[in-house]
Structure formats: C-alpha cells, structure tokens
C-alpha cells in the first residue's frame, strides 16, 4: 500500500511527449512495456488468479480428482465442512500454534535484538548469523531430525528434564496429544525466530541516535529510555512484524506433516494438513478417498476467514499504533 503511493508520485512527474515522432516512440515504448510485463502477468493470472477462481468452482462438486467434475452437489460441501468437528479442531490447533509462537518469538527476538543492536558489541553480526541460521533450513528436514532425536532418545531427554525438575513424569513426546503440539510449537519458534530478529534489528536501526543522547542528557535510565523512546519508535515497524508473524504461523504445514501428520487422533491437525489429507488422501480416517470438492470448500472457508482476520488485524493494529504512538511521544 505504501508502495503504490510512491508509484503515483513518480508517474505524475513524467511529462507527456508532444510531437508526432515522439508519439511513435512512445507507442513503441508502450508496446515493449507490455512485452516485458507479459511473462509476469501470465504466471500471475494462470497460476495465482485462475486457481483461486477455479477452486471456487470445485466446491460445488463431489469429485475425487479423476476425470472431470460432474456430480453437482450445490452447497453440500460447505455444509459438510461447517459441521465437521475436525475442521474446527484443526482451526483451533492453528490458532493455539499462532497464540504461542507469535508472542514468545516476538519477545525473545526483541530482547536479543536490543542486545545485538549495541554498536560497541563486537561480533554482533556473527551472533546474528547463529540465531538466524534455522530460517534457511528446510522445515521438513528439521522435522525429520527432531523425530530422530525424540523417537530414539526421548528417554534420555526425559531423564535430563526429570533431573532438572522441568517435568515430573515420563513423557511420550510425539504420542501424547499435548506434548506433540508443544513440540511443534517449540520447533516452530526455533525455525522462524531469525526473521523477527532481523526485522527488529532493522527497526531499531531506524531510531535516531540523537534521541538516545537527549534522553541520557535528561538523566533517563535504561528502562525509561526503553519505555519512552524505543517502544514508541518501534510501533510502526512492530505492526508490520506482528502481521507478518501471524500470517506466517497460519501457513504452518511442513513441520506438522513431517512430525505427526496431524496425529495422534487429529490432536495436532492444523487446517493446512486437514486440507491436504482431504485432497490427497493420507493418514486420516475420514479421507481414505480423495475429496477435492470438500478440500476446496475447506480451503475457501479458511481463505475467507484469513482475509477477514488480516483485514481486522491491520485495522486494529494500525489504529492502536497511531493512538498510542502519539500518546507515547506527547
């Protein structure tokens, strides 16, 4: 949205050419502009826009994905999704995942960013690399590593944690519904933590040094500086970071599919694995036969929920940032 505003400014500056020769040159420029733009637009229209429209069409059919859809069932698929308790449970698990991952990740990332933002700290970029590195690893492969660790050495981990009094009885890590989701949450925090660290570091670097100096001259302590300078100055970037983090957590698929495939007994099923199991079959008892119509209906309902949720989120966070932002600086 910010970008389109700057674009218009740029357009307004270019003057319309006048003479006939110039008009021909301009027409040639337009023609080549379309040629340059065409590959991007074709990919976008064919593989992003068309599928959104097409999947809406599938929702009205009972279809296993073989041949053409012909068994028209009207709104039956939507009715079935809305009445499927597993759909709502998957939605619940997705929200629980986001509700744990986003706040924990943001608090930890902000804390580490404050430490690393110190200009006198040497090797800061080396430490940043260490904590950022999981971002570039494949979530699926990390899932395999965690599975190897937990399924072979779950007992060793148990005894270490028992000794540290973190747990009080032996735990079947991926077999217990609560712990399985807990492990997915922990690995999720670990895997995408680095994004938030880099975002916060970028945000901190936009705060002018003079503000901190002025605060120091006024005798402000560390906490007061953090509370009255850092936090208000980070609000604009903070809104973007929260939105990106929430959107990211709602896309969770790889980790769950590899670690538990939604099990045990749907205890870790998230919406994306639910849709996948509906569309392509899999470990789900209710998805032995692929049901493309039902999967498309679930996708559509989830898509609408997500759009509604992100619009509300953007509006709420923006107004919150504005109101508190001016209040904090006044």
């Amino acid at each position: 949205m910010v970008m389109t505003a700057t674009v218009r400014e740029d357009v307004a500056r270019s003057e319309p050419p006048r003479s006939a020769g110039r008009r021909r040159a301009r027409r040639r420029t337009y023609l080549w502009s379309y040629v340059y733009l065409a590959p991007m637009m074709v990919l976008l229209l064919v593989f992003v826009v068309y599928p959104i429209i097409a999947s809406l069409g599938y929702t009205f059919y009972k279809w296993d994905g073989i041949g053409d859809p012909s068994d028209f069932v009207g709104l039956d698929n939507f009715r079935q999704i809305v009445h499927d308790s597993i759909f709502w449970r998957s939605l619940g698990h997705t929200f629980v995942y986001a509700a744990f991952v986003v706040p924990i990740q943001l608090v930890l990332a902000l804390a580490l960013a404050l430490v690393l933002n110190n200009k006198k700290l040497r090797f800061a970029s080396f430490y940043r690399t260490l904590f950022f590195l999981p971002v570039v690893t494949s979530a699926a492969v990390i899932g395999v590593v965690i599975q190897l660790l937990v399924s072979n050495f779950g007992d060793s981990i148990n005894s270490v944690l028992l000794k540290l009094h973190i747990i009080h009885q032996h735990v079947d890590w991926l077999g217990d519904p609560h712990f399985a989701l807990g492990i997915i949450i922990l690995v999720g925090i670990w895997h995408t933590f680095g994004y938030n660290l880099v975002y916060f570091l970028a945000g901190l670097q936009t705060i002018p040094e003079e503000l901190y100096e002025a605060a120091r001259l006024d005798g402000a302590g560390r906490f007061a500086t953090f509370r009255y300078i850092t936090i208000p100055m980070l609000r604009a970037v903070g809104v973007v970071i929260v939105i990106l983090a929430v959107i990211g957590t709602f896309q969770i698929f790889d980790l769950v599919q590899v670690l538990t495939s939604g099990g045990p007994f749907f205890a870790t099923e998230v919406v994306n694995t639910y849709i996948y199991h509906l569309a392509f079959g899999g470990s789900n008892a209710n998805a032995v036969q692929p049901d493309i119509g039902l999967a498309s209906a679930a996708s559509f309902v989830y898509g609408v929920l997500l759009i509604a949720f992100s619009v509300v989120q953007v509006v709420v966070l923006r107004s919150l940032a504005k109101r508190r932002g001016t209040g904090g600086l006044a």
Binding site: P51, S55, G65, Q251, L306, I307
Partner: peptide, 23 residues
Amino acid sequence: CLGLVSATLFLPHGYTIIPVFDL
C-alpha cells in the same frame, strides 16, 4: 496491473494447489 499485483499480496496462498495440479 499494479492493482492486481497488490491484491494478490493479500490473498492467502497455498490453498489453490488443486486447480494448479489439474492445470
């Protein structure tokens, strides 16, 4: 074109794999 490109930024991705597969 710009409007279309910006609009797809907001649409959730990954839910449309079925028509892409079919295509």
